[in-house]
Write a protein that binds this DNA or RNA. Sequence first.
DNA 1: GAGTTTCAGTTGACGTTGTCATCTCTCTAG
DNA 2: CTAGAGAGATGACAACGTCAACTGAAACTC
Lengths: 195, 195
Amino acid sequence: MTSRAESAAATRRALLEAAAELLDSGGLDAVTLRAVGARAGVTRGAPYRHFLDKESLLIAVGTRAWDTLGDRMQALRAEPGLSAAEKIRGGLLALIDVGRFQPHLYQLMFSNPPGDPTALARAAQRSQTEFLAVVADLVGEQDARRYAALLISSANGIAGLEASGQLADPKWGGVCAEDLTDTLVEMVAATSRHT
Amino acid sequence: MTSRAESAAATRRALLEAAAELLDSGGLDAVTLRAVGARAGVTRGAPYRHFLDKESLLIAVGTRAWDTLGDRMQALRAEPGLSAAEKIRGGLLALIDVGRFQPHLYQLMFSNPPGDPTALARAAQRSQTEFLAVVADLVGEQDARRYAALLISSANGIAGLEASGQLADPKWGGVCAEDLTDTLVEMVAATSRHT
DNA sequence: GAGTTTCAGTTGACGTTGTCATCTCTCTAG
DNA sequence: CTAGAGAGATGACAACGTCAACTGAAACTC
């Protein structure tokens, strides 16, 4: 029926799922190995058969999130009938949406864990490479790197402000993430067109 | 000599200082009430005379950081002989520098604590108001809010990428935070000039 | 198919942490 | 001078991450 390997893979998946759900609903403090195990139907010691560490488990959760975002970027790039600017807008909003609707996961994706500070940066690479390619279609190979870095930074910041609910402050005149993204993309497009 | 109130205020200051130092050197995990107390010359229970909670202590550390940044913004705005663009550049780099040289403090400043999610957002208000005024000098009252939000978001993102060391990746063509900031300010200045 | 190995999962234990209740002692108000 | 307040110390407790030892069933060997 279910071989040992299959069952082990299933619990590993269940552990990741449980950790992601707990992170979403209760923040990082709610992610305890005991709670993760309970939600996955095992006990506190079981995660150590699949992950070196609590930190390793969290890194795996963050990596999975980066992977699905990378898939989305890849699909977006291949989408026909979209201009480069539209693709960029889509990609930025995909990132921003994580910050908006899963703020704790978003924070995890950009945290660099003490044990392996480069782990999540590596996981983010595919997303960023895909995005870089789309930016190159808009502004050319020459300036692509600079503008891609700028755009990702900005999206990152927008998502961060959204995640902490600061954008809702009337101080900013009621702008929303979409407005800022549009302004940003327009600015880059105009600048690169002009030079 | 030293009245009781003075001595109490001194320990409170020492606790804040100790927490900030531990955060800087060892990250959030290094900030335990026992370690903070020891470094401040008291024991683990003493912080509860000055702060409701460990979280309250951390909020106080973050608030103090926002206050000093606010002072810097205020001084920068009042500085004569600087153009609006130069002031904006200075303000953005002031924020970015926190992300670069005190990444853990930076992360704390933008985290919203579960107990009082708006606490740090309130502390950030003065910094943002000062910055908003400088932006208004460049792009006019009309668009100031939108562009200020965009600039702060971008600086936030640049600082975040710097903090996690991702900007150093050759993938981005060796840009540094100053480059991105300059590009950004130029873009905003050009856009607002053109409309 | 019997014996052996492997390995996912459980359980008990330990050190550390945040937090509370209680106690001590010194400064201050009246 | 006395009573109160309040800063700090201390003991205790539950929860946490983590490790060592243990259990049982699947997988392999002959």
